[in-house]
């Protein structure tokens, strides 16, 4: 495949970069994610994990079903930081160091 083909759209990771990473010895989706960031963008790997698993399988001779996907953690969707504010309990000022510090 053409090296310039985009595999991870969120983080703009190309086929060539993934193949190079595999050649350098990174043979799991988790390792490739940590080095290249594919799967760390806002879609959390929903678009690319399957493609990357298949590329790993092709390059290493493993069967695609045997290539594990990266761990899934909450939240399932990107959320705004303000969502985490808790009325009456969390004062965001203290986080910036300008509010009451008790």
């Amino acid at each position: 495949m053409n090296r310039d083909v985009i595999i991870c759209r969120c983080e703009d990771v190309t086929y060539g970069e993934i193949v190079d990473a595999i050649d350098a010895g990174l043979t799991t989706t988790e390792e490739i994610k940590r080095i290249l960031r594919c799967g760390m963008g806002p879609c959390q790997g929903r678009t690319c994990s399957r493609l990357i698993a298949r590329i790993i399988a092709e390059k290493t001779g493993a069967k695609a079903p045997d290539v594990p996907y990266p761990a899934v953690r909450p939240p399932t969707r990107p959320v705004e930081i303000g969502t985490l504010e808790e009325p009456g309990a969390v004062r965001i000022e203290t986080l910036t160091g300008t509010g009451d510090e008790e």
Partner: peptide, 13 residues
């Protein structure tokens, strides 16, 4: 601007 989040009785967490 970060403001103090007031308590909100209409917001059952």
């Amino acid at each position: 601007r970060f403001t103090e989040a007031p308590s909100d009785p209409d917001y059952p967490r």
